[in-house]
Simulated scan of single mutants.
Amino acid sequence: MIIGLLIIFVLVLFLPFSSKAVEQHLEIFLFAMGLLAATVSGQLQRPLFLKALEDPINLSLAVLIAGLLFKWFQTPLEKGIYAINQKLSTRFFMALLVVILGFISSIITAIISALILVMIASTLRLDNKSEQRFVILACFSIGLGAALTPIGEPLSTIATSKLNEDFFFLLRLIGPDVMAAILLLGVLTIFLVKPKGAIHRSSKSIKDSYQEILIRTGKIYLFVMGLTLLGAGFEPLIHRYIIGLSPLFLYWVNMVSAILDNATLTAAEISPVMDHATIRAILLGLLISGGMLIPGNIPNIIAAGKLQITSKEWARFGFPLGLSLMMLYFIVIILVK
């Protein structure tokens, strides 16, 4: 059994990064791997299957409702954003957006926050370097903030479900760390994003069709369902190899989420028998490093795809930024227990 689960674990870690076909159909792949892992470990029974059907409901509904509202009110939202930008300095305006998107992403979901970010970036005509830095800083903020509630993103949905905790558990556990990081990212935006020339309203507008909204909702449902099965299937591996490891060691190991979706790693690593210090270190490592490269988090994938930011362009700014935050929060974890 352990050998079989190790093989599945390696496939889950590396195939999405090395295979275009798997990357393009990640939800189906993870669902299949989740079924396989749960079967190999002997966990695939009626209670688990019902739980896997139930876990994605809240996040999927949130994505659907927020997606529809965003589509219906996108035009007035664009006009309002442009009007506000005319009254504030560009740097302060972008810093404010980075902070606001980070704080609201746990309510409107990381996906919708990323779509709003794309709409803002396409509405305001920035030079390439400024746009890339603004988007990357905002995606770090969104990825962090969305983890504070179970409806924010798959990582928080899976973590809350696996730990059998209440809606506000993650807010209590990592809320102060995440909020401080979001505010820091806002300040960094003022100093690191320096637009060249005046900001003009762009004529292009990126809109989703109803079909795209429904497909995205279905993909999220299947994605979270697969992660629930995967997490349950990997329980024997967690008990044998991960529980008992130093939280500080796990923190740095989770830099691998820069190239792998952090929700997948959450499903593989988190267990209710872990103490809160270990869970905190695991989650902070996953959340911070998830912003370093495009594959690490859903907002990165959405923003980079729609705004045509290449992996090399993202890494040039995102990796050193993420590494700096990792080093800062390593000190925080040691000092604040």
Rank of each mutant, 00 (worst) to 15 (best):
V118E: 08
T123Q: 13
L170D: 06
A138S: 15
P195F: 07
T160N: 13
E153S: 07
I213K: 08
I220W: 01
F168V: 05
F167H: 03
T157M: 07
Y210G: 06
G186L: 08
L192N: 01
G145S: 04
I190Q: 03
I120C: 11
L192H: 02
L229F: 05
L170I: 04
C139D: 14
V118I: 14
F167Q: 04
I182V: 15
R133W: 09
V193R: 12
L185P: 10
N164A: 14
I199S: 06
F140D: 08
E165P: 00
Y221I: 04
T217A: 11
A198P: 00
A181S: 14
L214M: 15
L229S: 05
F140S: 09
V178H: 06
G152V: 10
S156L: 09
F191M: 03
Q211E: 13
S205V: 12
F168Y: 05
T228D: 06
I182P: 10
I151A: 06
L230Y: 13
D127S: 05
K207A: 10
G197Y: 03
E153I: 10
L184P: 05
S161Q: 09
G226W: 01
A138K: 05
M179I: 07
I220D: 02
L148P: 08
L144Q: 11
S205W: 00
P150A: 12
Y210F: 15
F167D: 04
L137T: 10
V118H: 12
I174M: 13
L185K: 12
F223H: 12
L214P: 06
A180D: 01
M119C: 12
E212G: 01
L222R: 07
A121E: 06
G152E: 11
D208E: 14
F134C: 08
R216K: 14
L148S: 09
K219Q: 10
V224H: 12
L183Y: 08
G218K: 04
G175D: 05
I215W: 04
E153N: 14
M225S: 15
Y210W: 15
S141A: 15
E153V: 06
I120P: 00
L126N: 11
T189S: 13
T228H: 02
